[in-house]
Simulated scan of single mutants.
Amino acid sequence: MTALQGRVVVAREHFVVDVALEVAAGETVAVMGPSGAGKSTLLQALAGLVPLGGGEISVDGRVVDRVSSPRVQVAPMHRGIVLLGQDARLFPHLSVRENVAFGPRSAGVAARVARASADEWVARVGLPGAGDRMPHELSGGESQRVAVARALAASPKAVLLDEPLVALDPDTAAGIRRMLREQLDGVTTVAVTHDAADAIALADRLLVIEAGRVTQSGPVRDVLGEPASDFVASIGGVNRLVGVADGGDWVAGEVRLASADAASRALAAVDGAPLAAVFRPGDVRLVGGERAGADAWAVTVTDLEQTLSGVRVRTGVGVVDVPLADAGGLAVGGTVRVRIDPGTVRFVAVD
């Protein structure tokens, strides 16, 4: 059953956001895209905070927003949708318990019942006994936990997450991510994130938006593993180089790559077919001297970036992760030779 469905059309300054979305009951869909691609606009339109320029939104089969006649525009508080962002936005004058009880009480639930339920929700998100605390006494991570409890205590039909972990330190974010995975199980959710770890941990499917349009969608690992754009390749941590099939290999200029993957070889069987070669930076090896054979190619170093484990070498043909011990002598503008094992290369069709 589809719980959240619609087509969102909203004019932005430089482009029009035009996104079709279907989320099954209990499903979590992650949304990723470059900054300014329209992700937050999508969520705000679903929540009723940004007016539609076109399209229609329905929740559990009930139309809550429609531009065409007969016009429908249900107020945000009556859509059954809650939006959680980077700022928890707790009511500063209310205790944790009263913040969480606010939604049920507004819906007519008796104060005693709502407060008892609030204490249960506060415990469920990892803050047992915190009901009497005030928002100013909470850390950023604790505030986000309370915000999740407040949202879910209202029994929403759908939850929208707009990068709720982006302002948290890594350890705190990891804890909140685990809590979200547990508490959102079975809750219809759309989660905007910039972190592939969030998408993998929380979502069933991934929707990629670039310049207001969906450029790729599907199961999270499938999308990240077969990137259809440079942006998806970057968040998936892989190189994506566009070339053509030639003699069963991938070719671009003087660079020729082979793949040991059967599906990749099948794609490369049609000479001239556009292909993208996908491989991880850590699978590329620097070679030189006697080891630099015909299967190695020369690249120019365009940038050097220190990493925790070594140096990331950016070149005109992909990115190479080099252990610190092998990074001596590398310089921007210099030329190095590289090689990659065919067993670590896959080919992806290019539209």
Results as ranks from 00 to 15, higher is better:
T2A: 12
Q5K: 14
A11L: 14
F15M: 04
V17L: 12
V17D: 08
A20I: 03
E22H: 10
T28A: 06
V29Q: 12
P34K: 11
P34M: 07
A37L: 03
L43I: 12
L43W: 08
G53M: 05
G55Q: 04
S58F: 02
R62W: 11
V63F: 00
S68A: 15
P70S: 09
H78R: 10
L84H: 03
G85N: 03
A88S: 06
P92K: 09
S95E: 10
V96P: 05
N99Q: 04
V113G: 14
A118R: 04
W121H: 11
G126Y: 02
G129H: 00
A130T: 05
D132M: 13
E137H: 06
E137I: 06
G140E: 01
R145K: 12
A147Y: 02
V148C: 08
A151S: 03
A153Y: 09
A154W: 06
S155N: 13
S155D: 13
A158Q: 00
V159A: 05
L160R: 07
E163V: 15
P164Q: 03
D169E: 00
V187N: 13
T188F: 00
T193L: 02
H194W: 02
I200F: 13
D204Y: 12
V208W: 04
Q216C: 11
Q216G: 14
Q216M: 04
S217K: 06
L224Q: 09
A233L: 13
L241S: 06
G247M: 10
D249H: 06
W250H: 08
E254Y: 03
A262S: 10
A262I: 12
A266N: 12
L267T: 02
A268R: 05
G272T: 07
R285E: 03
A292C: 06
G293H: 04
A296G: 13
W297Y: 08
T300D: 14
T302R: 15
D303C: 15
E305V: 14
G310C: 10
G310T: 06
G310A: 08
V313W: 00
R314T: 13
T315A: 09
V322Q: 04
L324E: 14
A325V: 03
L330F: 10
G333H: 11
T335Q: 13
R339L: 11
P342H: 05
T344H: 14
V348N: 07
V350G: 01
